[in-house]
């Protein structure tokens, strides 16, 4: 009995230590975001004191110099728009190709599956030139691009769920005079809700953080958060204002952490479900 209590405490102490290790990189960025830019290189580990503390100066500089607020809202519009489009349209597609059994639909399903293992670099150049020609290189234009790239995993997950649903309820609704569109939105979609939440979370995490696709299509005219941070670093050629840069990193991380702390249950469940079914 005594022995297991001791081993409990050792495990607890170990986990506590590891938590500190996990938090440390973020802690380091946060303390340095409050220090003058001259005091970051050379003494990065020291806590800000009266000589080095600059208040929110770095934050003001970061916001003004790199259009962080604009980037934030752009990223938000792109993420929300794409996630809504993906959840609504791919669930419709998945229901249709699962219920209407034809050779063609089966092929479509396998093509969606196949797309999941193809790395982005394979289509990077050709996709970019086609999208630019079609005028998809804008904040709203990138939404159908995300729909195309997100459809593989999303159709796969929705199809998996639809296969487990009995079709009698849908048939009853149609016999009662509901058309397929009404049947889908009033009968099927409510049942898909758990999967819809998972699909929404997985896609939101990917799109919010994505870098290369918005960098290639939107570039410096319509920066998203990841692009703004990368361009700040690239454009500085080594002569970076470290204080302002630290503040930008903190600003990019804070919304995600707040969102995470509020929706943690759904996020972890979504990730686990997504992995187990994916």
């Amino acid at each position: 009995m005594m022995k297991s209590k001791i081993s409990h405490w050792i495990s607890f102490a170990f986990l506590l230590f590891l938590s500190l290790v996990f938090i440390f990189p973020i802690y380091l960025v946060v303390i340095n975001s409050f220090k003058s830019k001259f005091n970051i290189i050379g003494e990065p580990f020291s806590f800000p004191d009266e000589d080095t503390f600059v208040g929110f100066e770095n934050y003001i500089y970061g916001i003004e110099s790199a259009d962080i607020v604009g980037s934030f809202f752009r990223t938000l519009i792109i993420t929300v728009g794409s996630v809504v489009a993906i959840v609504v349209l791919t669930s419709m597609t998945a229901w249709y190709i699962t219920r209407v059994k034809s050779k063609f639909n089966k092929w479509i399903y396998y093509l969606f599956l196949f797309s999941m293992i193809v790395p982005f670099q394979m289509v990077m150049y050709t996709m970019t030139s086609i999208s630019v020609k079609l005028g998809l290189n804008s904040v709203l234009g990138i939404i159908p691009v995300y729909l195309g790239f997100g459809s593989g995993l999303s159709v796969f997950m929705f199809s998996g769920f639809v296969k487990g649903l009995p079709s009698e309820i849908e048939e009853a609704a149609m016999i009662d005079g509901c058309g397929p569109i009404k049947t889908f939105f009033y009968v099927v979609f409510p049942m898909l809700k758990p999967t819809a939440i998972t699909v929404a979370i997985l896609n939101a995490m990917w799109i919010w953080n994505d870098f290369l696709l918005p960098y290639l299509l939107l570039g410096s005219n319509n920066k998203t958060l990841s692009v703004a941070i990368q361009l700040t670093m690239q454009g500085a050629y080594g002569a970076i204002d470290w204080g302002g840069f630290m503040a930008m990193l903190v600003l990019a991380v804070i919304p995600i952490i707040i969102f995470y702390l509020f929706c943690q249950k759904y996020i972890i469940k979504g990730v686990v479900d997504g992995a187990v079914k994916g």
Partner: peptide, 14 residues
């Protein structure tokens, strides 16, 4: 209605 929007996007970008 159900398949074309997704499939067109998928075809064009993938």
């Amino acid at each position: 209605v159900f398949v074309l929007p997704t499939f067109v996007a998928f075809t064009v970008v993938f």
